[in-house]
């Protein structure tokens, strides 16, 4: 399960018009999870945005320390979720999302808040 001190981050803005995702990625760390909701779900389509500052740094550090196989987003140890209702409302088919983004219902969002020590909202 999640490390006991892990944080759930929420992002509800598109990275094209807001620095909310960038701020989140700068301070999110391995073991944390990110829920994309509202206009934040547009970020789910953009792997490059998610592999921005925060994730990229973790991935590179981990890769260098292990010298293992080529790094992927998953190897940052951060789970990324997108709310299904918000995807549906905006015409984003789940099958268009990259493999590292998991679609969730509201009840899963509530469950994620419970399994993480705290929730930080970026908006």
């Amino acid at each position: 399960m999640n490390p006991p001190l892990s944080t759930l981050h929420t992002v509800n803005k598109s990275a094209f018009g807001s620095d909310a995702l960038a701020a989140c990625l700068r301070v999110a760390r391995s073991g944390d999870a990110i829920v994309l909701l509202e206009d934040g779900v547009y970020n789910a389509l953009d792997t490059a945005a998610l592999v921005g500052a925060g994730l990229a740094r973790d991935i590179v550090a981990e890769h260098q320390s292990r010298a293992g196989p080529a790094p992927t987003v998953d190897s940052a140890g951060m789970r990324i979720y997108a709310l299904r209702k918000d995807l549906q409302a905006r015409g984003i088919p789940a099958e268009q999302l990259p493999a590292h983004v998991e679609t969730i219902a509201y009840k899963d969002f509530v469950a994620l808040v419970c399994t993480h020590a705290k929730t930080v909202s970026w908006f």
Partner: peptide, 17 residues
């Protein structure tokens, strides 16, 4: 730096932005 902010978040009981 951002590592310090990440640490503050980890240590806190609740975070408000």
């Amino acid at each position: 730096d951002s590592d310090k902010i990440a640490e503050l978040i980890r240590q806190s009981d609740a975070v408000f932005t």
